[in-house]
Design a protein around this nucleic acid. Structure first.
Lengths: 124, 124
DNA sequence: GCTCGACTTGGATGAAGTCCAATATCTGGT
DNA sequence: ACCAGATATTGGACTTCATCCAAGTCGAGC
């Protein structure tokens, strides 16, 4: 556990939002000016493989990192401004996929992304 | 309707797969050697806004283009090789999102991505 | 045939991410 | 405390995917 990794962990911990790698880097630099982008990417990658952080690719721009890895949840994304909220739908979509639709795959995970317009953008 | 656009449409129509923009370009070049990447991107963008083709961002690499835009469906992705199948789960995930979890959003769409390992990769 | 507008081209540019060699730091063993 | 090996970090080059733009081309209507 080095200073750099601690800083990255703190950035993700302190903010319950979905930051891009560059945003993580920007906030990490604020706390530890000499930290490099490569280290941020390395550390984020390690956190992902450790299961402490989730990668989400809700738009096709930058990946975002979700520190809320321990509670299963899905995402609700504003189509206009890109805002992301965690949501907890009822039901389990895994049980909605019959064997006949699995094509022999071993299905282990499911991601659900709801899309819509947030109240702010609807008002504007 | 120019020759270039017809070629792009043919590429997507002839293949019921999920091609990246570069793959579309490669196949378009096979039919019309002087077509440029920019035109492929332009045409794909137009087809997307016309609703004839869907963009899917199942991995964080290149966007893929799905010509099966008129029948609602979701995707099953192999975590190892990236293979994509269209699937049709039962149930409607939209009805699984209670009002209390919508945060005032006007929710209009939902994407479901199942992840697993395909038979080929499981055998290897 | 000419003109105007739309389409296409290829190359430059940008954004996001990865890679790598050199450097720094940490750890355990003596 | 010192050394050696292992591990981590750095910064910059590089890759990939995508977009932008100025210049050139094409075609329909006059």
């Amino acid at each position: 556990m080095t200073a750099q990794r601690r800083v990255v962990a703190e950035v993700l911990d302190g903010e319950h939002v979905h930051l891009t790698a560059d945003e993580v880097h920007a906030r990490a630099v604020a706390k530890l000016p000499e930290i490099s982008r490569a280290t941020v990417y390395n550390t984020l990658g390690e956190l992902v493989t450790l299961g402490e952080v989730l990668e989400v690719a809700t738009d096709k721009r930058a990946k975002r990192y979700d520190p809320n890895a321990h509670q299963p949840h899905h995402h609700l994304v504003c189509a206009r401004c890109g805002a992301i909220r965690d949501v907890h739908p009822t039901g389990n979509p895994l049980s909605d996929l019959p064997d006949s639709e699995r094509f022999g795959f071993t299905v282990s995970d499911v991601e659900v992304t709801y899309r819509g317009v947030c109240p702010n953008c609807a008002a504007a």
